[in-house]
Simulated assay, not measured.
Amino acid sequence: MDMLTYAATGAIIGLIIGITGVGGGALMTPALLFFGFPAHIAVGTDLWYAALTKTSGLWTHHKKNHIRWRIALNMATGSLPAAILTGVVLSIWFGDAQSYGHILKSALGFMLIVTAVMLILRSYLSKTIGARGQTDTEASNLFSIKLILVGVLLGILVTLSSVGAGAVGTAVLMMLYPRLLPKEIVGTDIAHAVPLTFIAGLIHLHLGNVNFTLLAALLIGSIPAINIGAMISSSIPARYLNPALASLLLLLGLRYALF
């Protein structure tokens, strides 16, 4: 019965991801905490969930030439070492998962609040920052300090919370590169999120923080539901769903950040 419950949870969250593009770590990790899983298992398992669900999307975006690889590589230059260093600190500085569980919950709360704010601002950003569809010459730079620093911050926070590689990464790219097409922003963000969540997932696997039986149940429910959500997304008004999702994430964020 528990496995059916987890599969149903995966289906519900997968449907939301398909419709809105948001909800992987932002909803899955709190859901696992609600079911009574400790923070380290919730975060570690969700990182593998995110990595596996986004991998198929990566290949699709690559074939359609939606990915600005130099942007993704600059971000990964900061995020991947930062994720590894975060894992080293968790492994060496703290004796066991129980001792750093409160840090994971606080990081989760912070990132849920940030994700809620970014979700509220996403429509505003897409409408008001720059002219879409023009060439952004800065996006072709071989080396970008600001992207590397953004990557460092995401590497630390995603490893601690499993949240932010999607919604926060997308919003940052909107602000830094307003002339990129929406499909390029999404493709580039996924190109960065996949290796980051895999590396962070491997770190948590090394720490013993991944429940693969739970992961399998979540994927069984979510993979078909994501595709269904994508197919029906155009018929569901985002102006109602996004504020409701943002409000839920904000409440969850305050819950884990403050209590």
Rank of each mutant, 00 (worst) to 15 (best):
77 T>N: 03
144 S>R: 11
170 T>G: 07
121 L>D: 09
148 I>H: 02
51 A>T: 09
195 P>V: 07
162 S>D: 12
90 L>K: 01
43 V>Q: 01
246 A>V: 03
224 P>E: 07
258 L>I: 15
63 K>D: 09
251 L>G: 11
246 A>S: 10
56 S>G: 15
172 V>Y: 14
171 A>E: 03
111 M>A: 10
23 G>V: 05
198 F>T: 10
208 G>M: 12
245 L>R: 01
104 L>R: 04
62 H>D: 09
206 H>F: 15
244 A>P: 07
242 N>S: 10
140 S>F: 15
33 L>P: 12
36 G>N: 10
37 F>H: 13
20 T>D: 01
226 I>C: 03
228 I>P: 02
58 L>G: 06
224 P>Q: 05
46 D>K: 00
106 S>T: 12
59 W>H: 14
240 Y>K: 01
184 E>Y: 04
2 D>H: 09
15 L>T: 15
63 K>W: 08
169 G>D: 05
73 L>V: 14
215 L>H: 13
34 F>C: 02
259 F>N: 11
133 G>R: 00
156 I>N: 03
94 F>R: 00
37 F>A: 09
41 I>Q: 01
80 L>N: 05
242 N>L: 06
11 A>M: 13
186 V>P: 08
157 L>D: 03
194 V>W: 02
237 P>W: 11
67 I>S: 04
39 A>V: 09
71 I>Q: 04
125 L>W: 13
78 G>D: 05
237 P>Q: 05
170 T>D: 08
23 G>K: 03
195 P>W: 12
52 L>S: 08
49 Y>R: 00
147 L>E: 13
145 I>W: 14
219 L>A: 10
105 K>F: 04
231 M>H: 15
33 L>V: 06
231 M>Q: 14
3 M>S: 14
254 L>W: 04
66 H>T: 10
221 G>P: 02
82 A>C: 13
148 I>V: 14
20 T>V: 14
210 V>R: 00
31 A>K: 02
203 I>R: 00
102 H>E: 12
223 I>H: 04
252 L>H: 13
109 G>A: 11
158 V>Y: 08
162 S>M: 06
85 L>M: 06
60 T>D: 01
11 A>R: 01
182 P>R: 05
144 S>F: 03
76 A>C: 14
6 Y>I: 02
186 V>N: 00
119 L>P: 08
239 R>E: 06
